[in-house]
Simulated assay, not measured.
Amino acid sequence: MQIQDVFSRYGAELKRVEEEMEFHLRSEVAIIPEIVTHLLGSGGKRFRPLLLLISADLFGYQGRRCHTLSAVLEFIHTASLFHDDVIDKAESRRGKVSANNIWGNAAVVLVGDFLYSKAYQLMAEDGSMEIMHLISTTSNVMSEGEVFQLIKCGEVNLTEEDYLKIIEKKTAILISAACALGGYLGGAEVHQIEALKQFGLRLGSAFQMTDDTLDYVAREEDFGKVIGKDLNEGKMTLPLIYTLKRCTPEERKFIETALAERRTREMPAGDILTLISRYDGITDALNQAETLIDEGRTFLAGLPEGPAKEALFAVSEFVLNRDL
């Protein structure tokens, strides 16, 4: 099964997720849906809802709760993007002017808060304490990841361990929750839900690793964000971490100076990319992502066979090969 087959299989359900989100974004304060739609309507493959739908299908569930809880995931994810863009002073998001550059930081932060509260309102209406506990824990971990990344921003001595902690808390944990939610909805056994969590955790970490690598090598029109954005913001990602461990003292000093002066001088991104390529930073980061995907797939071994399981394998393959 290819990723196109996956989207074809779940296309109708994803359309219902879109309708569910649109319904719950209605507000008498017109600027709220206007700001949210600016981001939600600018692309994105609804990766987290897709994983929820597949995981629920794995255990034979297809129903309204899938759509509502998928909206919960997208609202939490979108809120985190809004807050990210304010913190990073982002100028663009998914190829468009970022919301904070149009409506200002205050409005965007408050709309992010609206999305968080709407997500919790929908979970309360769903009524499952297991799901409420899973998502509230997930949101708390994501917030920890945001703070941890903030204090580590521009730190050239960031370890690979710290980097993995950041991406697990910021990105992988919500993807893990998406997989687990599908299991809950399908009535999966505890060990099966745990297997989905572990698969999602590794899939999510690999997703962020490939995203960070695309920041150096993708075409901007394919990637949907400014190439070199992470570098300009002083974010230490795996290709750069590997390079700093392997390069000469003179080359390391060059990179350190560029990062320290990034707010006052143009970042020599081309020269740094040359160093990253010389020391196999990109290749080894992608190899690490592949290792995580392989680990994640082992957790699928005891889960029900069929098209849904094939779809999970196809999604994991897509994560490794998207737009490279």
Rank of each mutant, 00 (worst) to 15 (best):
residue 76 I to T: 06
residue 132 M to N: 10
residue 313 F to A: 06
residue 99 A to F: 10
residue 144 E to D: 13
residue 172 A to G: 07
residue 62 Q to T: 13
residue 130 E to Y: 13
residue 232 N to Q: 12
residue 163 Y to H: 15
residue 34 E to I: 00
residue 240 L to S: 04
residue 173 I to D: 00
residue 30 A to W: 02
residue 232 N to M: 10
residue 19 E to R: 15
residue 91 E to H: 00
residue 122 L to G: 06
residue 161 E to G: 11
residue 42 S to E: 06
residue 229 K to Q: 14
residue 49 P to T: 02
residue 90 A to L: 08
residue 15 K to F: 12
residue 290 E to T: 07
residue 219 R to M: 12
residue 258 A to F: 13
residue 105 N to F: 02
residue 184 Y to K: 15
residue 69 L to S: 13
residue 279 Y to H: 09
residue 255 I to C: 01
residue 132 M to E: 06
residue 215 D to P: 01
residue 61 Y to A: 12
residue 109 V to Q: 10
residue 179 C to L: 07
residue 312 L to T: 03
residue 86 V to A: 13
residue 189 E to I: 10
residue 57 D to S: 15
residue 164 L to K: 10
residue 178 A to F: 13
residue 117 S to A: 15
residue 292 L to S: 09
residue 46 R to A: 08
residue 190 V to L: 12
residue 111 V to A: 12
residue 172 A to P: 01
residue 270 G to S: 09
residue 167 I to H: 12
residue 203 L to V: 08
residue 155 E to I: 03
residue 25 L to A: 04
residue 117 S to T: 14
residue 41 G to T: 03
residue 238 L to G: 06
residue 285 A to I: 01
residue 282 I to N: 01
residue 297 R to H: 07
residue 259 L to D: 00
residue 193 I to G: 11
residue 21 M to S: 07
residue 291 T to F: 11
residue 35 I to D: 02
residue 170 K to M: 02
residue 39 L to G: 00
residue 216 Y to F: 15
residue 139 S to R: 01
residue 219 R to T: 04
residue 182 G to Y: 07
residue 322 R to G: 08
residue 164 L to T: 03
residue 166 I to W: 09
residue 256 E to S: 09
residue 159 T to G: 14
residue 13 E to G: 09
residue 293 I to C: 05
residue 92 S to N: 10
residue 114 F to K: 10
residue 199 F to L: 07
residue 218 A to R: 04
residue 274 T to Q: 15
residue 240 L to M: 10
residue 201 L to S: 08
residue 308 A to Q: 04
residue 39 L to P: 00
residue 138 T to V: 14
residue 224 G to Y: 12
residue 107 A to N: 09
residue 254 F to I: 02
residue 163 Y to D: 05
residue 97 V to Y: 01
residue 7 F to A: 02
residue 317 E to F: 00
residue 293 I to D: 08
residue 67 H to C: 05
residue 87 I to T: 14
residue 211 D to G: 00
residue 32 I to N: 04
residue 114 F to Q: 12
residue 91 E to S: 04
residue 196 L to C: 10
residue 92 S to L: 03
residue 110 L to W: 04
residue 111 V to P: 07
residue 156 V to Q: 01
residue 14 L to E: 07
residue 254 F to L: 10
residue 80 S to E: 01
residue 192 Q to K: 14
residue 28 E to N: 14
residue 117 S to G: 11
residue 184 Y to L: 08
residue 106 A to H: 15
residue 116 Y to W: 14
residue 23 F to G: 01
residue 147 V to N: 09
residue 223 F to C: 01
residue 43 G to M: 07
residue 69 L to T: 07
residue 71 A to E: 02
residue 184 Y to I: 05
residue 115 L to Q: 08
residue 230 D to K: 05
residue 203 L to S: 08
residue 307 P to S: 06
residue 306 G to D: 00
residue 298 T to R: 15
residue 88 D to G: 14
residue 122 L to I: 12
residue 220 E to R: 13
residue 315 V to D: 02
residue 265 R to W: 12
residue 74 E to W: 05
residue 135 I to R: 03
residue 1 M to V: 06
residue 294 D to Y: 05
residue 257 T to I: 05
residue 11 G to E: 14
residue 28 E to G: 13
residue 196 L to G: 11
residue 127 G to V: 10
residue 319 V to P: 07
